[in-house]
Design a protein around this nucleic acid. Structure first.
Lengths: 149, 149
DNA sequence: TAAGATTGAATTCTCAATCTTA
DNA sequence: TAAGATTGAGAATTCAATCTTA
């Protein structure tokens, strides 16, 4: 692939993610949460027994130190809670509160709906091919090396 | 397309962009700049006559208020400068300084190299198809509507 | 009135250093 | 020593409000 197409492809991946995030904020704002916060709630909704902040951070692809503040604000809003683990008192288990689950049940269908609208008209085959391309890019992104020069 | 595939596709676009941004920071850090700052420098490098902050903001897909701080830090580092426009004294023209261009000439080849490494093994045809999918997603992302409920 | 830019407050994010527990 | 979590500083981001010039 030539350098021009390569640049265009990587840039387009980033602007697409940016555009989607920016627009999805329109959905979340009326509910008083940000996209990052919805992300946390949505991951926790699939883990009724709760998750450690370490695991949560990995699932979200954010820095470990970042999870602390995110959870702080969500806990302050009453959507999540930290439970102490008797078996390992270093690790906090983060769980969704009743209010958090209620919020998720309200927002999730709307989110699903706009996700479907965004991919409208893209065939299953095309989607699969695109997925493969994206996964290849991710694999390469973590292993690039600087030229010796 | 089913909802599962739709969710996976949108999520993968976002994690790919995130991974790429995160890894590219490894390249920029030794030079004392961030990915956002390199982005500005790279856009300015292609516009020798300079750009208004408005146009710059649009090219970068960032908020207008954001450009101010970004330019402030780059100006403080000596890589860009604001020129007053006699014909419209509201608009500042932002130009790359000599030091800014020198930095760009040093970093750009490395950046090009890792972009090529990231897309290694992806055929021209696949890249084109992926581009089309991403552009469709962007077009739809700005026009979604909430269901009437 | 409108457009370009700026400011201030709040959130998010990364990094490095630190604290507590294992 | 190592692992989970936290803290503080700096950078980036968004929004709403403001300032200046057109």
């Amino acid at each position: 692939m030539d350098a021009d197409l390569a640049r265009t492809l990587t840039r387009e991946v980033m602007t697409t993610a940016d555009t989607f995030l920016r627009e999805s904020a329109r959905l979340f704002r009326p509910h008083g949460i940000t996209a990052a916060q919805y992300n946390v709630i949505s991951v926790l909704a699939a883990a009724p027994e709760g998750l450690s902040q370490r695991v949560l951070g990995d699932a979200l692809v954010v820095d470990r130190s970042n999870v602390t503040g995110l959870i702080n604000r969500l806990a302050e809003a009453g959507y999540v809670a930290r439970k102490v683990q008797p078996e390992d008192r270093r690790a906090h288990r983060v769980v969704l509160t009743v209010a958090g689950r209620r919020l998720w049940e309200k927002v999730c269908p709307h989110y699903e709906s706009i996700v479907l609208q965004v991919v409208a008209g893209i065939s299953k085959k095309r989607a699969g091919e695109t997925l493969a391309v994206l996964q290849a890019m991710q694999a390469h992104a973590t292993t690039w090396k600087l030229a010796k020069k």
